[in-house]
């Protein structure tokens, strides 16, 4: 029973991990500029990796190597956002202008009224 439960938990974790990594890959390819790409690279990818690593940890069970899987999970969760921040910051330092709504449709921005709603 427990084995069965663990089996399905691993399947679900792997499926979601794969899904989020897929979203991340699609995002990195589809999104328009470096800042937007960094979003999926840092977040969806981290979650995908985290879920897959959790599945590995679960599959290994109470083994000494499970600790490594858990450590890896923590490590990925700390370093990935930091790396994304470093990359985005480096882009900002080298003067890459982010593509925003204002630059896209070329209207004067009005900071007092944040635009609401979807653009579709």
């Amino acid at each position: 029973m427990i084995e069965q439960l663990r089996f399905w938990a691993i399947i679900i974790l792997l499926a979601f991990g794969l899904f989020f990594t897929f979203v991340s890959a699609v995002g990195v390819i589809r999104l328009p500029d470096i800042y937007a790409r960094a979003h999926t690279a840092s977040q969806t990818d981290t979650l995908g990796a985290g879920l897959a690593l959790a599945a590995v940890a679960l599959a290994l069970g109470w083994d000494s190597m499970t600790i490594y899987a858990v450590l890896l999970l923590f490590f990925v969760f700390i370093t990935n956002p930091t790396a994304a921040h470093a990359i985005a910051r480096s882009a900002a330092e080298s003067g890459i202008v982010p593509l925003t709504d204002e630059t896209e449709v070329d209207v004067e921005p009005d900071p007092s009224t944040p635009d609401e709603g979807d653009s579709q």
Partner: peptide
């Protein structure tokens, strides 16, 4: 850009 490649 370099940063795009780095990100990938």
């Amino acid at each position: 850009t370099t940063q795009d490649r780095l990100l990938a």
